[in-house]
């Protein structure tokens, strides 16, 4: 199992290698969060095990509309920061249609983070093929720090879930995940997501997940 580090743990005396999750003070590299220590030839980083979602440009996220304004929507993206979706960034907008008829309070959307200003004001867009208003399917929420595990190296975990269960799955970087497909398969997928969340820091997870899915499928068909 990769080494778990805590804030203040000394990772290296080579500041040039400092990567995500670390900070440098006085020629020393320390961890600033609780996470898994990862060292490569040219970088040292700490993969977070906990923490809120901090938006980055380009992230795919799932958000819930909280407010309809005169020129767009304020969207809760499960982060200390609310996001704003301008009218111009929603392809469903047509002249004459009222904004709340397109998206109303409580509606869920898949969107992408378009820009973030220095005050952390986040603007999102739905102009991307993965984006849509969510009108069916199921949304589950996990600890955003575990999202990379749900996606897997080069998307391997998502591919596994999709192929074994034949469900649609969109993973938001902010910890919200959309699942769609056969009701019972979606139920298994949801269990899988929670399993990954709980065991994100362990090894051999991909195999165990495959095993888990097969067992569940047998139970359902048997």
């Amino acid at each position: 199992m990769r080494r778990i580090v805590l804030p203040g743990d000394l990772l290296s005396t080579n500041p040039k290698l400092a990567g995500h999750g670390t900070y440098v003070e006085g020629e020393k590299v320390y961890s600033r969060i609780i996470g898994l220590f990862e060292q490569t030839d040219n970088s040292i980083r700490v993969i977070p095990l906990k923490g809120k979602y901090n938006p980055s440009v380009g992230d795919t996220i799932i958000g819930i509309v909280r407010e309809v304004t005169s020129n767009g929507w304020n969207v809760d993206i499960n982060s200390p920061y609310q996001a704003f979706l301008p009218v111009s960034e929603n392809p469903e907008c047509k002249p004459g249609k009222k904004l709340n008829e397109i998206l109303d309070i409580g509606d869920a959307i898949i969107a992408k983070v378009m820009s973030i200003d220095p005050r952390m004001r986040v603007t999102i867009t739905m102009k991307d093929k993965v984006c849509r208003a969510i009108r069916f399917g199921r949304i589950v929420a996990i600890n955003p720090a575990r999202v990379p595990r749900v996606i897997g190296k080069k998307g391997s975990m998502i591919k596994l879930i999709k192929s074994e269960l034949d469900v649609q799955i969109v993973v938001g970087q902010n910890g919200l995940i959309w699942l769609n497909g056969d009701r019972r398969k979606v139920a298994i997928a949801e269990e899988v997501v929670y399993l990954i969340e709980e065991e994100a820091h362990t090894e051999g997870l991909t195999d165990r997940v495959g095993e888990f899915i097969r067992r569940r499928k047998n139970v359902q068909t048997g």
């Binding site: 804030p7 900070y23 969060i33 095990l49 720090a145």
Partner: peptide, 11 residues
């Protein structure tokens, strides 16, 4: 604070 994932210099 560590449990909440808050970035800190140390404990």
């Amino acid at each position: 604070l560590v449990d909440a994932g808050i970035p800190m210099k140390g404990m």
